[in-house]
Nucleic acid binder design. Structure first.
Length: 895
RNA sequence: GGGCGGAUAGCUCAGUGGGAGAGCGCCUCCCUUACAAGGAGGAUGUCGUAGGUUCGAAUCCUAUUCCGCCCACCA
């Protein structure tokens, strides 16, 4: 593919055509691709794999703007840079969406059967899969697309099953029959992390259980329907209210079943309620354990479909919530409902479908967490894995304490089958990736594959190394593992990040990444999390169409402050689009005036160079320092803002304006300004490229074409600028800042004095001291920037206000008085009022400072430099007050 | 019940011990041949509230109110 045409730069920057053109160019030239190069320093990221059927939302846009900025920066900095993209099969999420979609077509999941459903899932994946990855290209993401991985692709499946078998052989994976989370709608078990707890206003029902032989105990419950499965009432052994009840039985109401009153100091808190607790071992994890301790029977009265079972007697077949109503009615009828209180408590909901989860007694596969959690804890505590912002490290450590065993089996079709083969003859389990010929215990060939699939997070936990070829020891693993950073959002720290940390340590014996950057959540302007289901999606593709990929990236980076949440404000994107346009036009101007100036490789300014040249180069050096520091610390907003301000407020507003005057001047000086313009612009483009890759590439290509360069190189493979201390010039910066202040004062006086642009004004500058302003530059630079003819600016000797004609308006800077003679247009009254207001403001400020300096405590305790600074401020305020007072008295004399 | 963020200009947000800032919006002037998608100038704040520490607090401490998030089996 040849270099795109970039000859004529149009007046306004139009992103759409430019962006797709350069993306195709980079892609075709293989600039996104990386190969292992032994001995060469590398930089590697893997993206958090989005759901395969997902679409880009604005949170992704932020996340990937960050990824690609880091990648382009590191790549230009000379590292062998790789980013592996990919998608997640998202078992439960995808299965649910597909089931709903099929239902709309009148097809039920069960009628398709396992094979049919899995085939439909693959079809669905092929149809919608990869949409999101295509959308990432619109943002400019420089990922190695050849290496795109999917958690269900062949190699990845092998990695997952290998990991499973490793754990299994160690005895860390085991079968358990216990009460766990169950979603009756998704019809599968869930891990604790897939359950969202929400506060719900509900009721607390107090039910009287008659004691056999007289009396009663009252128990309270938020789920009255579970009483049908009660197998005991527990009290605290030391509770005097219930001591006499121990050993007796109650007649379970409704069911008329006799159940014992038992003592259980662990389950029962005697300070709560009546001190008596109904025990339902099949429907509550705590009751389950109580049941184990006391050998209680387990009666499942709610089934996997959320309906009451045969064990629920005449309530069998009812939905659990309907059963609740009817049980309450029945209790009321029996006169056993003592009271009903309003009660707020947390109810678990399925993360995917928001159905209320039901604690059910089921057989599941569990992964032992003890050793794995310890690996992650150690890595974080020792600082081998660091979080940015670091507060998330504390949160991560907290969540690693007392991690419950991980329920890894799911009753789903879409996902990785457990590599376990059950023998129909002897019931033994044979672990194997492929179907084994015979049962390892009895040799029978009558085997069937375990029907369960794995929690989707079990596979994503292996992501950073599985995508690099693990379990094989590939060149990619050698070159790129550990990866360098994980960039993701806080919602999945526990679900994913920590699981990658211990998985990496366990399987590869090395951390998967030393840094974890947690970016903020993108919210709506009202502060609500953006989500499709809430209709607050925020489509980044629309933004890109409207403002450009560069502006979308840049605005998000400008807002990405220290991991803070971002209330999305579209005007910020608009602002970044304007910035791109500004850069574009400044570049156009520079190129129009460059003539045949060759691009200098470096510049060595000395004292003989014009002030503004030394100033802009010093400012450039400073911004380079800021950018590299900020990017290194993941302070994207600082880096982006430093560049934004440099380009717009310093280069465009001041330097380019001053350059205009020099093109027609002496040849040597014109040549110098062209050199500096070319150098600063080209360096700025390289520095900005990671933030705004498209527009910088477009400009850079025409710049180099104009400068006579040839070849097919791209900006994205140029070297990243580094700070050059020899450009740093504090003195030039200080002197130039005085020029800026002078110019602003003149402009201000003109505007406030109501001078029309064409109107002649005489400016008199009176320095407060011999060296207070750079005398050489003042007449020329100030006059030029304030749009005056040079003859209309007069630099008077220090303190010689006598040469200023009256009446005039005046302003005070830190270094000089500035007088504007408006040829009879001065409104003395208005000017007097203005100056009086100014004196009031200065006096107020002055009394604050003077008060401070008269405070002996301040003088003795504050650091000397602070005191000195206050003294300087006081001096300056006094001087300005003096200047204005003098001007006031001059005004009164004229009137 | 515990923990973590946030509260600063009309809006979106920077600013962690020493003279309150940016962008957008608003007001005035200007189509000066890079850019009107621009330029110049301007107005705008009891820095959530109340205490405290300090010579000095938007910034540190305590309490408190709202908003958001995370954790937690008290029936």
């Amino acid at each position: 593919m040849s270099e795109p045409e970039t000859s004529q730069l149009s007046k306004a920057y139009e992103p759409s055509a430019v962006e797709s053109r350069w993306y195709a160019y980079w892609d075709a030239h293989g600039y996104f691709q990386a190969e292992p190069e032994p001995g060469r320093a590398s930089y590697c990221l893997t993206i958090p794999p989005p759901n395969v059927t997902g679409e880009l939302h604005i949170g992704h846009a932020l996340q990937h703007a960050i990824h690609d900025t880091l990648l382009r920066w590191r790549r230009m900095s000379g590292l062998n840079t790789l980013c592996v993209p990919g998608t997640d099969h998202a078992s439960i999420g995808t299965e649910r969406l597909l089931t709903l979609s099929l239902k709309k077509q009148g097809i039920s999941k069960m009628s398709l059967g396992r094979d049919g459903f899995v085939k439909a899932a693959w079809d669905w994946t092929e149809k919608y899969g990869g949409t999101i990855l295509k959308q990432l290209r619109l943002l400019g993401c420089s990922y190695d697309w050849r290496r795109t991985r999917f958690t269900m692709d062949e190699g990845y499946v092998r990695a997952v099953l290998t990991a499973f078998l490793d754990y299994y052989e160690r005895g860390w994976i085991y079968r358990g029959s216990r009460v766990g989370e169950w979603c009756p709608s998704c019809n599968t078990s869930l891990s604790d992390l897939e359950v969202d707890h929400e506060e719900v206003l509900s009721s607390l029902w107090h039910i009287r259980y008659p004691i056999q032989g007289g009396g009663s105990v009252t128990v309270a419950t938020t789920r009255p329907e579970t009483m049908l499965g009660d197998t005991a009432v527990a009290v605290h052994p030391d509770d005097p209210r219930h001591k006499g009840h121990l050993g007796k039985t109650v007649l379970l109401p409704v069911m008329d079943r006799e159940i014992p009153i038992i003592a259980d100091p662990i389950l029962v808190d005697p300070k709560f309620g009546t001190g008596a607790v109904k025990v339902t071992p099949a429907h509550d994890p705590n009751d389950f354990e109580c049941g184990q301790r006391n050998n209680l029977p387990r009666i499942s009265v709610i089934g996997k479909d959320g309906r009451m079972t045969e064990a629920a007697g005449r309530f069998a077949g009812l939905d659990r919530l309907e059963a609740r109503k009817q049980v309450v009615d029945e209790l009321e009828r029996l006169g056993l409902l003592e009271k009903v209180e309003e009660y707020t408590h947390a109810v678990g909901h399925c993360e995917r479908c928001h159905t209320i989860v039901e604690p059910l007694l089921t057989d599941q596969w569990y992964l032992r967490m003890q050793d794995l959690a310890a690996l992650a804890t150690d890595a974080i505590k020792s600082g081998r894995v660091r979080f940015f912002p670091d507060r998330y490290a504390a949160e991560a450590l907290r969540s690693l304490e007392n991690v419950p065993e991980w329920c890894i089996s799911r009753q789903l079709f879409w996902g990785h089958r457990l590599p376990l083969w059950h023998c129909r003859q002897c019931a033994a389990v044979t672990p194997s990736i492929d179907r084994p010929a015979a049962c390892k215990a009895c040799g029978s060939s009558d085997l069937y594959e375990d029907p369960d699939t794995l929690d989707t997070w079990f596979s994503s936990a292996l992501w950073p190394f599985a995508v690099l070829g693990w379990p094989d020891n590939t060149p990619e693993m050698e070159a790129f593992y550990p990866t360098n950073c994980m960039i993701t959002d806080r919602q999945i720290i526990r679900l994913w990040v920590l699981r990658m940390v211990y998985s990496g340590l366990h399987f590869v014996k090395e951390i998967p990444f030393p840094d974890v950057y947690i970016h903020g959540t993108v919210l709506t302007r009202e502060g609500v999390r953006m989500s499709k289901s809430k209709g607050t999606g925020g489509d980044p593709v629309e933004l890109i169409n409207k403002y450009g990929g560069d502006a979308t990236r840049m605005s998000l980076l400008l807002m990405a402050s220290k991991g803070q949440d971002i209330r999305f404000a579209e005007e910020r994107v608009e602002g970044s689009r304007r910035f791109a346009n500004k850069l574009w036009n400044a570049s156009r101007f520079v190129m129009m005036n460059l003539a045949n100036t060759p691009l200098p490789q470096s510049l060595s300014p000395d004292a003989s160079w014009p002030l503004e040249d030394r100033w802009i180069l010093s400012r450039l050096n400073r911004v380079l320092e800021t950018v590299s520091r900020a990017l290194g610390e993941y302070d994207f907003d600082d880096a982006a803002q430093a560049l934004y301000e440099f380009v717009w407020n310093e280069f465009c507003d001041w330097y380019v304006e001053l350059a205009k005057a020099r093109f027609g001047g002496p040849e040597e000086d014109a040549a110098r300004v062209r050199q500096v313009l070319a150098f600063v612009l080209e360096t700025s483009l390289r520095t900005l490229h990671p933030f705004m890759p498209f527009v910088t590439e477009e400009i850079w290509q025409s710049l180099r074409t104009q400068l006579g360069a040839t070849g097919n190189d791209s900006l994205m493979v140029q070297s990243y600028p580094t700070a050059d201390p020899s450009l740093s010039d504090d003195e030039a910066e200080e002197r130039f800042s005085r020029i800026e202040e002078m110019v602003r004062t003149v402009r201000n006086l003109r505007a406030q004095g109501g001078a029309q642009p064409a109107q002649r004004v005489q400016v008199y500058v009176v320095p407060i001291a011999e060296d207070s302003i750079p005398q050489v530059e003042v007449p020329s630079l100030t006059a030029y920037l304030a749009q005056l003819a040079r003859a209309e600016l007069t630099l008077l000797p220090p303190k010689q206000t006598g040469g200023v004609p009256s009446p005039s308006v005046a302003g005070a800077t830190r270094f000089a008085e500035v007088h504007l003679s408006l040829a009879g247009l001065v409104d003395v009254e208005k000017e007097t009022a203005k100056l009086t207001r100014e004196i009031e403001a200065i006096s107020k400020e002055l009394s604050r400072v003077t008060g401070k300096l008269q405070n002996s405590q301040f003088l003795s305790r504050a650091p000397a430099e602070v005191v000195d600074k206050e003294r300087a401020i006081e001096q300056e305020l006094k001087t300005r007050k003096h200047q204005i007072e003098a001007q006031l008295s001059r005004l009164s004399q004229t009137s």
